[in-house]
Computed example of a mutant assay.
Amino acid sequence: MVAPADVWCTGLAEYRLDDLARISGVSARNIRAYRERGLLDPPRRQGRSAYYDDYHLSQLKTINQLLRKGFTSAHIAEFFARMREGHDLAAILGVQQAILGGKPEPARPAAVALDLDPGCDEAQRLLSCGLAELKADSLSLTHPGIAEIVTHATDQRSYIQMILRVVASTEGTIDELAANLVAAIEDAFAARYGAGYVPRPDEADEVAALISDYRDLGMAVVAHQLDRAMQRHMVSAVSNYTAGIATNDWKPTE
């Protein structure tokens, strides 16, 4: 079974049908029906297995919201069909894509295999967190910045253990932070357009760009604040280390 996003981290994850049903609250039977009626995008196929992701989860939430507002399945199917064709209410699709990080990703460099057994605990945790991928029985990191550091290390395992420690120690904090950032985006959007506002077709690009900007701003501010806090703690750690050496009457080896 593919581990859900909340096992190790809260990034984009993949789910089997039963996992998606459990997380979304929509029965597997209804998910199949939505897919057959054109409401839900097809899953990613790998052999005989089907994998859904966070975008499908977002679509299910949208479907539930429309059903609660009185839309029929036929209306919703037509709605999604027109969105896929780029007609009329495509604005909402643009908004969803912006929330999920819809900007085109730059071309990724060729993956470098890790010196790590794909079946070991560390590898499975990296896969569950979405920080690694398995291709042709070799494991490689998915984040270019992390991959560049780790693949050039002489002791990759210690770097990987560092990554997993950070993931484990920040899991709850990251989820709470993400919820607060999304709430801030919702408030900012409501302050500009009004609560419950549905964009007009001609506002699609504007709304998608605004939400994408809000998302990027939130992440940039968090990165900046984290960097400042780490600098303070690093200075403190170095000072404590130096003081410890002095206290122990350290002397260089002659």
Rank of each mutant, 00 (worst) to 15 (best):
G25T: 09
F79Q: 00
I31S: 05
A246L: 05
I174K: 04
F71H: 09
E171L: 08
L126D: 01
F80M: 05
D187R: 14
L17T: 02
D41M: 10
Y193N: 12
E14R: 08
Y159N: 00
M1P: 15
G47W: 09
G194W: 14
G25S: 08
P201M: 13
A50G: 09
V235T: 15
R35I: 00
R68W: 04
H143G: 04
L17N: 01
G70A: 00
Q46H: 04
A223H: 15
I99G: 00
P199L: 07
V198K: 07
R45Y: 09
M234V: 15
Q161E: 03
A21P: 07
L134N: 06
V221D: 15
S49C: 15
N180P: 07
P106I: 03
R108T: 09
R48S: 14
Q225R: 15
G70N: 04
E176N: 06
A50N: 07
G194K: 11
A90V: 08
G38F: 07
K135R: 09
D155F: 02
W8C: 05
A191M: 10
L100R: 05
R200A: 11
V182R: 12
D227K: 15
S212K: 14
I149E: 07
D121T: 08
A195D: 12
D216E: 15
E203A: 14
S49E: 15
A50H: 14
D216V: 07
P4L: 11
L217F: 14
I99K: 00
R82L: 06
V166Y: 03
R68Y: 04
